[in-house]
């Protein structure tokens, strides 16, 4: 497919698992584990999809999402929030800040893959 995805996640084993699944599906996968400069990494990579955790060192995923949406270049990149925070208010907050999709951990590999595919279809 040739699409690229940027995983912003601080859990190395989750990065590895998702990277494996996506790579096998033909995606180019990059990862970043710090919230502080994550929005900058998005601008540098300009991926087709961003997978974003909420609980990150440096800045929260919500703050990163706001920054992504605040830049003209990255404002329309599809963002899938993947987080352990499953409360309705967190989901609403993410949607309010412009997340395209919201998934909670623990997640199913196939569901993650299908959702990421759907974001570029």
């Amino acid at each position: 497919m040739g699409n690229s995805v940027l995983l912003i996640e601080d859990e190395p084993n989750i990065i590895e698992a998702i990277s494996f699944i996506l790579s096998r599906d033909g995606w180019t996968v990059h990862s970043h584990s710090n919230g502080a400069d994550a929005a900058g990494e998005v601008l540098r990579r300009m991926p087709d999809v961003v997978v974003l955790d909420v609980m990150l060192p440096g800045k929260t995923g919500f703050e990163v999402l706001q920054e992504i949406r605040g830049h003209k270049e990255s404002a329309t990149i599809p963002v899938l929030m993947l987080t352990a925070r499953g409360q309705t208010k967190d989901r609403e907050k993410a949607e309010g800040f412009g997340a395209n999709m919201y998934m909670t951990k623990p997640f199913s590999n196939s569901e993650v893959l299908e959702n990421i595919r759907s974001l570029v279809s």
Partner: peptide, 14 residues
Amino acid sequence: VISTVSSIQSSATI
């Protein structure tokens, strides 16, 4: 706990 369980589940599924 949730993050670790997610990682285990994802790796095991693979």
